[in-house]
Design a binder for these strands. Structure first.
Lengths: 204, 204
DNA sequence: ACCTGAACACCGTTCAAGT
DNA sequence: ACCTGAACACCGTTCAAGT
């Protein structure tokens, strides 16, 4: 009906904007002091919003780390895309690993990794989401391995799915250890390359 | 001086007993509900002790997980001892991995792993302690690899220290993923064996 | 010397009240 | 429809008082 009532929604884009605003503030705080040590009040101050408003967009503090964890898509996706184009599979994988390790370089984003795993261990929904993402990633890497095998760039020594799973597990393990033992991304990338070489046995 | 005064220490073994009592109770609680979700009050109830008494033996809740993490020595040490005796290095490593994965089988000890890493990322003392232990473990595995190389059981394809680091990182990564993605210990041990085979290239 | 348990401080979450 | 900020509930930690 024309000339009906007041607008039902003031700004349809607002909710998404608020969520982004909160996530950015939270990411900054968490990286600085860690998930547990950061208080909701600090996040609110950083985001210039009140607690009441924050809880309008996130049901709990844990949901905020979960959202951050799932947001780390973009970089990883981009690196995976480059992988499909890489003539040299090993080089592509090494670059992927290096990007992964370097992402948590100067800032303390590495510390967040542990928090996210810890959270996931007690939050089935986050666990499920991470699991899905891991499955996708592994599948894409397996596909790249298959591709390289068809081009006879590497020996078909191992089922590609299995090789991909092993590589991803090692990547996660190295990233975690990086957060605690403070090894450099370059050193870790070199080590990952060594691993990939031995698992995938490239010809020449 | 004889017939001096009251005994200065009622029972010299008491402190250690109390610590053990608290750690056992805490371990049970943490495995059941996770570190964060467990309250000090619950640990106290389980240990049949008051909060005040607990804080006489641990300065903070975080110190309790730290102690638990560092207590996981015994099993690992035993497995490492068996490793030095293993004629077949690969078999020994696989057994080590299987023991590691199976330790957190039915119970939810796996969930604790994430908590410990998260804690370590923000607790330099725990990080240091874990780092020391990792260094020792890696050195022992590297020694076992050297030994097997001298017996020409495996090809000297890779510096033993580097191979050991890669294997340990993968082990940690697989254990973590196990806590979230619920893969079986047997499957993971099989995958780890595959990895070890490719990294260490045994002869025959 | 060791313990108890009430009290304190802090922080995640809610909700009545505003616009 | 969206926000504020005071209030609530919960839990880690402390401490005065007991034995």
């Amino acid at each position: 009906m024309p000339g009906d009532s007041m607008p039902r929604i003031a700004d349809p884009a607002l909710p998404e904007r608020r969520r982004a605003q909160i996530l950015e503030a939270a990411r900054a705080c968490f990286q600085e002091h860690g998930f547990r040590q950061t208080t909701i009040e600090e996040v609110c101050a950083q985001a210039r919003i009140s607690p009441g408003a924050l809880y309008r967009y996130f049901a709990a503090k844990a949901d905020i780390v979960a959202a951050i964890a799932l947001d780390a898509r973009s970089d990883a996706e981009a690196a995976l895309d480059r992988l499909n184009g890489a003539a040299q599979l090993i080089d592509g994988l090494t670059e992927l690993a290096h990007a992964f390790f370097a992402a948590c370089d100067n800032n303390r984003e590495a510390a967040l990794i542990g928090d996210v795993w810890a959270e996931a261990a007690h939050d089935p929904l986050l666990a499920k989401a991470l699991s899905e993402r891991a499955k996708t990633t592994t599948a894409r890497i397996a596909a790249a391995i298959n591709h390289a095998q068809r081009d006879s760039e590497i020996y078909p020594a191992l089922a590609s799915a299995e090789a991909a799973e092993i590589l991803m597990a090692a990547l996660d393990g190295m990233a975690l250890r990086r957060a605690i033992f403070w090894e450099g991304p370059a050193e870790l990338a070199r080590r990952f390359r060594l691993l990939a070489l031995h698992i995938l046995k490239p010809k020449r």
